[in-house]
Amino acid sequence: MITLHHLNQSRSKRIIWLLEELNIEYQITPYLRDKVTFLAPPELKAVHPLGKSPVIEEDGVVIAESGAITEHLIAKYAPNELAPERDSEDYTEYLQWLHFAESSAALPLLLKVFIAKDGAPTNFLADYAEAELDKVMSYVDARLAGKRYLVADKLTGADIMMSFIIDILAKFNALERYAHISRYAKQLASHPAYQKAQQLEAQYDM
């Protein structure tokens, strides 16, 4: 049995989606952010020293980091369904997108989140975050032209990883700036497992 240590309003929702997509048995141990600081509760440090989410436990092994969790679960349970074949050109592109979500795409969005929460004027960061965000998202938008998914014309772990980025864009009301990303967001939301993850996230966000 897989246990997902799930923090509300976090990267953990995409792991719920992945687990639902894999159709394997799992359970959720939920945690709530502090209503004042919005930080994860200290109880998560008993699971992993960094006290962050998502974290899964499987057969006594603790695995952290969204990308590592996604790679591990797909390789074990659905290597040919949620990833291209390893010896294909698509697989190389898949790996790039899989890690893009937590590297190039995440930084400008998280900077905007932190700047908004801080509320203080900045000398550099706000303008940098906005310019970097537009550069990165314009790149994604161009790569999605004429495509339903990021790679191989099918849902893969890369799309599931990118769903967190889509969520933050939506919170900033920025999806409408990018026509292809906006269409892509609707495509992701059409999956029943995605909808189940949304439902479970709302259920535990209380």
Results as ranks from 00 to 15, higher is better:
residue 12 S to D: 02
residue 36 V to S: 10
residue 190 S to R: 06
residue 25 E to A: 06
residue 21 E to A: 00
residue 47 V to A: 02
residue 114 F to S: 14
residue 88 S to C: 01
residue 183 R to P: 01
residue 103 S to H: 13
residue 75 A to S: 15
residue 162 M to S: 05
residue 193 A to G: 10
residue 33 R to L: 05
residue 199 Q to I: 04
residue 119 G to I: 06
residue 51 G to C: 02
residue 147 K to A: 11
residue 140 V to P: 00
residue 198 Q to T: 12
residue 169 L to W: 04
residue 189 A to Y: 03
residue 73 L to G: 14
residue 152 A to Q: 10
residue 107 L to Q: 15
residue 120 A to Q: 15
residue 203 Q to V: 05
residue 45 K to C: 00
residue 80 N to P: 07
residue 46 A to M: 03
residue 98 L to E: 05
residue 28 I to F: 01
residue 206 M to S: 12
residue 48 H to F: 00
residue 73 L to P: 14
residue 67 G to T: 13
residue 23 N to A: 03
residue 3 T to Q: 10
residue 95 L to T: 09
residue 75 A to Q: 15
residue 120 A to C: 10
residue 21 E to M: 00
residue 186 K to S: 12
residue 89 E to W: 05
residue 167 D to G: 09
residue 116 A to I: 10
residue 38 F to R: 15
residue 165 I to M: 09
residue 90 D to F: 02
residue 142 A to K: 09
residue 68 A to I: 11
residue 3 T to L: 10
residue 77 Y to I: 10
residue 24 I to N: 05
residue 89 E to T: 08
residue 9 Q to M: 07
residue 34 D to P: 00
residue 177 R to G: 08
residue 122 T to K: 12
residue 142 A to I: 07
residue 195 Q to G: 02
residue 66 S to Y: 01
residue 160 I to A: 09
residue 108 P to Y: 10
residue 55 V to S: 02
residue 116 A to C: 12
residue 172 F to H: 09
residue 165 I to V: 13
residue 19 L to Y: 00
residue 192 P to I: 14
residue 52 K to V: 06
residue 200 L to S: 02
residue 127 D to A: 05
residue 15 I to W: 02
residue 203 Q to R: 05
residue 22 L to M: 00
residue 152 A to S: 13
residue 107 L to S: 15
residue 165 I to A: 05
residue 9 Q to C: 03
residue 100 F to V: 06
residue 133 L to N: 12
residue 82 L to C: 03
residue 122 T to Y: 06
residue 115 I to C: 07
residue 157 G to V: 08
residue 31 Y to S: 03
residue 78 A to P: 00
residue 68 A to S: 11
residue 183 R to M: 02
residue 174 A to W: 11
residue 122 T to W: 08
residue 67 G to R: 12
residue 66 S to G: 14
residue 204 Y to T: 07
residue 60 G to A: 03
residue 145 A to E: 15
residue 52 K to I: 06
residue 194 Y to W: 10
residue 137 M to E: 04
residue 79 P to H: 13
residue 9 Q to V: 07
residue 145 A to H: 15
residue 57 E to L: 01
residue 56 I to M: 01
residue 140 V to N: 03
residue 62 V to L: 10
residue 139 Y to V: 13
residue 47 V to H: 04
residue 92 T to V: 09
residue 91 Y to T: 08
residue 180 H to E: 14
residue 4 L to D: 08
residue 101 A to E: 09
residue 90 D to E: 10
residue 27 Q to C: 04
residue 204 Y to H: 10
residue 81 E to H: 11
residue 37 T to H: 06
residue 114 F to L: 15
residue 141 D to E: 09
